[in-house]
């Protein structure tokens, strides 16, 4: 008894069976006969457009006249945000992937570069700080000087006022008293005259 075979496509199976016993004889291999020089090699007849001669040289001229397409870089147009942001686009033709730094030399190079940069930054920071400190110091000194000048001026005017008073009332006893009183005032400072105390009295009940 022949083994049963399951055929998925019934129609296909029947077709092959129906096509003849030839295929079965060859062991199930069918050869497609290729007809050389049949349809594949036949050239399509050239279609001539009305009013235009079909000369091959003319087509070349047509491609030469093609308008040149300028890129945005050439035109100098400011870059706009697009689907791929401006900074993200990677240069073409560059190798993909990361470049690792693992050898000592390249590491040392980067290290020296970074250190030099940092040293420069710190140095400039220090210089700036020192300059600022100097400026602050100068300002403080100037302010102190001004304060001292102001005080001296005040003292001078005070002194002149005192002298004036002395000259006016020379030998006058009354003025002398006044002068002493002035001295006392300048020594202790003036005090505002005490206002009279307000008194409250209630009317006596009758």
């Amino acid at each position: 008894m022949a083994p049963t075979r399951t055929v998925k496509n019934k129609h296909a199976a029947s077709k092959t069976n129906g096509a003849g016993s030839k295929s079965s004889k060859d062991g199930g291999i069918t050869k497609s006969k290729s007809r050389s020089g049949s349809k594949a090699n036949v050239k399509a007849p050239a279609i001539q457009v009305k009013g235009r001669p079909n000369i091959p040289g003319l087509d070349k001229n047509k491609t030469k006249k093609q308008q040149r397409v300028y890129t945005e870089k050439e035109l100098g147009i400011p870059e706009l945000n697009m689907v791929t942001p401006v900074g993200v686009t990677k240069p073409r033709g560059k190798k993909k992937g990361k470049v690792f730094v693992d050898d000592r030399e390249s590491m040392a190079t980067i290290l020296a570069l970074v250190q030099a940069e940092k040293e420069g930054q710190i140095e400039s920071k220090m210089i700036r700080a020192r300059q600022m400190e100097e400026i602050r110091e100068a300002r403080r000194a100037e302010a102190e000087k001004k304060e001292a000048e102001r005080k001296a001026k005040l003292e001078e005017t005070k002194e002149s006022l005192r002298k004036k008073r002395k000259r006016h009332g020379h030998g006058n006893k009354h003025d002398d008293d006044e002068d002493t009183s002035l001295k006392a005032v300048t020594a202790t400072g003036t005090k505002a005259a005490k206002p009279k105390k307000k008194r409250v009295s209630f009317a006596a009940p009758e």
Binding site: V101, D102, I110, L111, V114, Q115
Partner: peptide, 19 residues
């Protein structure tokens, strides 16, 4: 685990150089 890229190395060393 991988080695650092040159940009990463620069960033790391830059931070370390602060201290």
């Amino acid at each position: 685990m991988r080695a650092l890229t040159d940009q990463e190395m620069k960033t790391v060393l830059d931070k370390l150089a602060n201290y």
